[in-house]
């Protein structure tokens, strides 16, 4: 029995460890995909790790107009993102933290991280950062209903209010019975993934033109370890949302009791697939005009709501 408990514990710790190690690799894969599609060789896959190491070795400079909020922002942001990762199941391993209603905690831990970034940006007193903060808050306020309504539809389908419970109930046979609402939710969560991680078509992570920046403009004043925390937190957030998508919506796994290593490997492969997919989207699409972004997010919300309506309409064969 003790062995079984140990096994469960070890299994549930696999995902946080994998996430902490491999999250920056996703950014590397995206960068490499974009470079290859553009006909360049591109930076090495481990470039984000080198960036982080370089930034951690630097000192930080703080403006005299900033207060403790500016220094606390990156730390709280990274901490809450790590806790959010702890709530997400991976492969067929349950998450270390699971309880009914943890999907709401997940959404608002990401919200807390965002709030800290926004407050730190406002704390600098720079006009540009305030503008970026306002945009970030607007777009995430529009992305939140898409995320929560989509998860509500999955919760209704799986009759479970916890992310790990959803993952356990989400098998291939269950999916084939409810492919319609679940695929709508998958598209909606894909849009949320792009928007929340400030990717094209919502935001361009490479832009440095003040008028169009959203996320990048908020972190302009951070430097050294603070910036490293922010970059690492962004990578973890990407990982968490992608793991949420494949864990609760798309059952890419075998699901037998003794196949969990296979499932973990399949999930890692799916994460790689999502990273490549994001890279392809970024290379083939143009950034949307700022006034069109709310339309895209409302479209995602529409898909989520439609999925919820289908679920409550009892149309699932």
């Amino acid at each position: 029995m003790a062995g079984g408990l140990f096994m469960t514990l070890a299994k549930s710790l696999i995902h946080p460890i994998l996430a902490l190690i491999f999250a920056p690799l996703m950014l590397g894969v995206i960068g490499r995909t974009k470079a290859i599609l553009a006909g360049r060789e591109g930076p090495p896959l481990a470039q984000p790790y080198h960036d982080l190491r370089k930034l951690l070795g630097k000192g930080a400079v703080y403006s005299r107009t900033t207060t403790w909020i500016f220094r606390a922002g990156p730390m709280i942001g990274l901490a809450s993102t790590i806790v959010a990762v702890l709530l997400v199941p991976f492969g067929s391993c349950p998450a270390p933290l699971a309880f009914p209603g943890d999907l709401i905690l997940f959404a608002y831990l990401l919200g807390l991280a965002r709030l800290c970034t926004v407050l730190a940006a406002l704390d600098t007193g720079s006009a540009f950062e305030g503008m970026g903060a306002s945009r970030e808050v607007l777009f995430s306020a529009l992305a939140e209903p898409a995320l929560l309504l989509g998860l509500a539809a999955v919760a209704r389908e799986t009759r479970s209010l916890s992310l790990s419970g959803m993952q356990a109930a989400q098998t291939l046979s269950a999916w084939s019975g409810a492919w319609l609402p679940l695929s709508l939710v998958a598209v909606a969560l894909g849009v949320v993934l792009l928007s929340e991680n400030s990717r094209i078509p919502v935001d361009d992570p490479n832009t440095h033109l003040e008028l169009t920046m959203i996320h990048e403009v908020m972190v302009l004043d951070h430097g050294g370890p603070d910036l490293a925390f922010i970059l690492y937190g962004a990578a973890l957030k990407m990982w968490a949302l992608a793991a949420l998508l494949i864990g609760t919506v798309l059952p890419i796994r075998v699901g037998l009791p003794y196949t969990w290593p296979v499932d973990v490997a399949l999930s890692l492969a799916s994460m790689l697939g999502i990273a490549v997919g994001v890279g392809v989207v970024e290379s083939t699409m143009a950034r949307l005009r700022m006034s069109r972004v709310p339309q895209l997010l409302i479209f995602a919300t529409t898909l989520s709501t439609l999925a919820l309506v289908f679920e409550f309409g009892g149309l699932i064969r």
């Binding site: 409302i298 479209f299 529409t302 709501t305 439609l306 309506v309 289908f310 409550f312 309409g313 009892g314 149309l315 064969r317």
Partner: peptide
Amino acid sequence: ILAGIAIVAASFWMGGRLPLPRPAPTPL
């Protein structure tokens, strides 16, 4: 768009209550 979603939801609600002369090809 929001009104459209409300209309779709209302149609599902109504569709479940209308008696049909024979079963529809799909519940949709």
